[in-house]
Design a protein around this nucleic acid. Structure first.
Lengths: 339, 339
DNA sequence: CCGCGCATTTACAACGTGGGAAACCTGACT
DNA sequence: AGTCAGGTTTCCCACGTTGTAAATGCGCGG
């Protein structure tokens, strides 16, 4: 077993509680006592036993982060940010993925792992409002992403419409005139893809660009493959865009590949903007201009909101909040030149 | 707070320990006592407090799984398998990724998180033998993947040479004659890519197929993009293979895309085999033949090995083992036809 | 010189669980 | 009836930590 407070106390000739006080930075400890104890702590390499601490405090010190897909770099990077930030607050993050399936999402929301975790950050895809209302677990829950619910939970998401407008406006400023949108989805109006499409549509109308269906390519998923195919369909349909705004970076990377094989140059012939700022985009042959959601900001907001509720306890409810972390347009080679 | 043994005991009119005995399936409990207690347990919805249990037992009930990249579907799926299997054994898995960077790998091996986890499963890329020898943490460590070390740790990996031979032999049996290899890497002889390349080379020589450098395409990474580019380079160099064996499924998927854009049909003109059996391969336009490492087997072997050492304690060392879970060739459309 | 107030330190209990051993109960055998 | 064996239940404690309250020590004003 490891070194405990008792071992340190014995060696330093003080009580267990005094050592505990030193460890926790308690105010009323004389400098010399503190120093002596600290020396022994360093000497023995004492590390607090988190299990015991958590038992005493009635918390586990763990939160779960349930994302749709770890295979998607955006989520992997977001997970990284949460793990890092929560780690700094002495919280351990349990990573789970739901596959975007409703049954899995319900399972987590309902409190699978209930006794193991103090709270849950969930990024739902298919979860329904009724699922949330039926929830009876008392562990705090924070929602991530665009889906909105009429249920009393904090909700963290960037302003996707504004972010999409920024990207679209950037292409307009470059003087592009036929700007396509790749990655629309069929489905609910509140979904992320619709919000980004809306931002695109607004800017296109406002600046006199075409917004016809022929400039919108629907995809099944969010992969490079989907992007490559969508771009191919668009070109095959006879549309010749001079810019493309993609739902996310993966689709954008796929689209750039198709453009390349069709002999179209990026950015000279077609400018490309993605969304997410995943690492891949920084190492492409043509580096990718993208809208970067502030992942650390999202991680921080979600974790803080969760821990705040945790600290407040079950009883005194905090008003459910809607938090919008920032975003930034990062311009790279894929939109560097003039047409 | 939750329901504790005390609450159940009170309600059932028995001692705390009796409830504990029921929960743990202790032998000497009369059927009627057991039934009565169980009824109350169900009624109140009692769930054991893992924190307390772990404190009492001196273990945390958590193991860490440190993989190079969660963004790679193979690792994501493998993580899934470990989480599921270990979960069945009442173990919680902490997922981490090292980015394949040596400093991170050393950090985990050295026992970052030492007091939090009971043991670690690590899939190293850059870790050096000296790093392992310098390790002073006493938490059990199990290594995953091909890199081999002269250090006393269990090691789980499929037989990559044999697996590659199976894939290559499959292409030979189809009557293919010019079989390329995509995804070789520069670097150490023990690395996975080299082993797969070796399997390919052996079968090619044995069956009188060419093994020249022009049939081998080196890639920087393991992504679809890498595969697409490697395939393009191969074709541009004037080689016209009638089959391709790829280091992994991602590369194979990229290769198929290039083949498609170049007007070559899969499998009629070029048969393609991948490696990993990731889910993507099952949903490609042309579904992908692949070598499927037995992921559940790997997960099971790694977890079992770790828990076995855990149970044995630090003292009585078990002989370090080398375990080889199985694999299987899964034939799909990408090798369905004759040339 | 006493006593008060404050800073510092300590003693104790409790978080929920399970191992070990003692206590209890039942029934059979002497 | 007394004793013993064996199954069943309970008691007590410890795991390592921290909140609370009590104890101790010190300086200073009266």
């Amino acid at each position: 077993m490891g070194i405990s407070l008792k071992d340190v106390a014995q060696r330093a000739g003080v009580s267990i509680k005094t050592v505990s006080n030193v460890v926790n930075g308690y105010r009323h400890v004389t400098p010399q006592t503190r120093q002596r104890v600290q020396r022994v702590i360093d000497e023995l390499g004492y590390r607090p036993n988190l299990t015991a601490r958590h038992l005493r405090k009635g918390r586990t010190g763990m939160i779960a982060l349930a994302l749709p897909e770890l295979g998607n770099p955006y989520f992997a990077e977001l997970a990284d940010a949460v793990i890092e930030y929560a780690g700094g607050l002495e919280y351990i993050v349990l990573l789970d993925h739901t596959g975007g399936r409703r049954d899995q999402e319900v399972l987590f929301a309902q409190g699978f792992r209930a006794r193991v975790i103090d709270g849950l950050i969930l990024s739902p895809i298919e979860l329904e409002n009724e699922d949330l209302l039926a929830r009876d677990s008392d562990a705090p829950l924070v929602l991530l992403g665009e889906r909105q619910y009429d249920a009393p939970y904090d909700h963290i998401a960037i302003d996707n419409v504004a972010a999409a407008r920024t990207a679209a406006a950037h292409l307009v400023e470059l003087g592009r005139r036929r700007i396509a949108f790749l990655g629309a989805r069929h489905g609910r109006a509140r979904q992320t893809a619709h919000l980004r499409l809306q931002g695109w549509r607004e800017v296109m109308s406002e600046t006199g660009r075409p917004t016809g269906e022929e400039f919108i390519a629907v995809t099944d998923g969010y992969t490079r493959e989907d992007g490559a195919q969508a771009m191919a369909r668009l070109l095959d349909s006879g549309v010749r865009p001079d810019a493309v705004f993609c739902y996310n970076d993966l689709i954008a990377i796929g689209a750039m590949r198709t453009l390349g094989t069709r002999g179209l140059r990026v950015p000279e012939d077609v400018a490309v903007v993605g969304f997410d700022d995943i690492e891949d985009g920084r190492y492409c042959a043509t580096t990718l201009t993208t809208v970067a959601p502030h992942k650390r900001g999202i991680a921080r907001a979600a974790t803080d909101a969760l821990l705040e509720r945790l600290a407040a306890g079950t009883g005194n409810a905090i008003e459910p909040r809607r938090l919008q972390p920032g975003f930034a347009l990062i311009t790279r080679e894929s939109t560097a030149g003039k047409p």
